[in-house]
Amino acid sequence: MVVLVIFSYAFIIYLDLMPLYRKKLWRDFGVNMALTLLTFAIAFLISLDVAIPSPVNPIKSLIISILGK
């Protein structure tokens, strides 16, 4: 799985990021790079079976505390 994720990301980066780099769209490249790193981190952790805390949980507890349920 891990190998697969890395392989896929290499592929995605080659096809998705490289054109931006070549076209010298630095802003696009930067934002895309950041997003890629983010998703790669998540995908990598998932493939390692690491439990990632859900971003929904804080929302849930916040709303419960507001509503006072």
Partner: peptide, 28 residues
């Protein structure tokens, strides 16, 4: 996202945003 960062074209980040959405769905 593209308006926030003033990107050239929103298409350049679609793939990653889409993946992010799927992964977010998975860990949600």
């Amino acid at each position: 996202i593209s308006k926030l960062f003033g990107l050239n074209n929103y298409r350049s980040i679609v793939v990653q945003t889409g993946l992010l959405m799927v992964l977010l769905a998975y860990i949600m």
